[in-house]
Write a protein that binds this DNA or RNA. Structure first.
Lengths: 176, 176
DNA sequence: TATTGTTATACTCTATAACTATA
DNA sequence: TATAGTTATAGAGTATAACAATA
């Protein structure tokens, strides 16, 4: 039998201090990401796949190396990711006439349809996340977060992954 | 020699749609988390340690099981985390008179000093993250995010970890 | 019989180094 | 000699099952 001696009074904990705000940002952000990750599973994709598809969709004819630099991923890990997307028939490695070492990454037709579907899914997801906010509030939130993002030098469209804690590589990234 | 044929025009990408907002939230949130994680390394801690210390600090005399439920962690993984904190002399496993199977987790004096230091660090961190916002904007942002957080049913003070994608357990969590 | 903390282990993901084929 | 992609593998982190002590 659990005692459950309903412990200790709770100190206040979101007093509106900068620290609490930073935590709140991380908390809501993480929730948004996890929630989206779940929505994408029925399509047979993981979050990482989505990032790659989006990047290929936006910047056409990227090389694997360029894609890795842009997303801050290791080329070695990108290989399997692209392999998987290729096996699903979403991405194609096109041969490069001018440099036979490298491939250019292309979306197949199926890949383009998938990307469209992902965009729709993203909108639906965003709508649920922001359900508590009216249109004006959403615009305000967007502007506030954009200010932070540019202030912090974040690459638009690139989601920094967590384990990058160790040694995130210098990113000669191009802008997406 | 890299060709670097500065590829393809860039479609617009933060048009302010709900999907873009959800992405922006996740992006800024992830950045905040990574950045804080780096700041905590010099103290010899990882992000997970901080979460545990905070939780023990807030709710006194928790049991490992209770802590695990609250944070949504597996008891097995909590063991090593507590081991590490105990080895650093920050946490102590106190014996429980009424149930000799379980321990109650306590902060040592050193652990309390560390927690104070962490709180100061958190404030400094938040201040840097929000550097681009004036006090009024910070209050606005806090309120907007709080609306989302409560709307989404987020546990105050509990940061959902990413890999929970798989099968996050039903949390009989108590409130922190 | 059920529960707390633990151990051992499988699985996934990230990071590093070495190899090949081109340049 | 350097670079693109690949392979193999080390290293974290997360999840699951089984066990000893206690209830």
């Amino acid at each position: 039998m659990t005692k459950n001696k309903l412990a200790a009074p709770l100190p206040d904990q979101d007093s509106g201090s900068p620290g609490d705000l930073a935590f709140l940002i991380a908390q809501v952000g993480s929730h948004s990401q996890i929630s989206f990750g779940k929505r994408v599973v029925p399509l047979g994709l993981r979050l990482a796949h989505v990032g790659v598809l989006k990047a290929i969709f936006r910047t056409n004819r990227l090389t694997q190396r360029e894609l890795g630099d842009t997303l801050g991923m290791f080329p070695s890990n990108l290989v399997r990711l692209i392999d998987e997307l290729e096996q699903k028939g979403l991405v194609r490695r096109g041969h490069n006439a001018s440099d036979r070492r490298s491939y250019t990454l292309l979306l197949t037709n199926k890949g383009q349809r998938m990307t469209s579907e992902l965009i729709a899914l993203t909108e639906a997801h965003g709508d649920r996340i922001c359900a508590a906010l009216n249109p004006l509030e959403r615009r305000e939130l967007t502007q506030l977060l954009r200010k932070i993002a540019t202030g912090q030098g974040l690459q638009p469209g690139v989601h920094p992954e967590l384990p990058g804690l160790k040694s995130r590589r210098a990113t000669k990234a191009r802008t997406l």
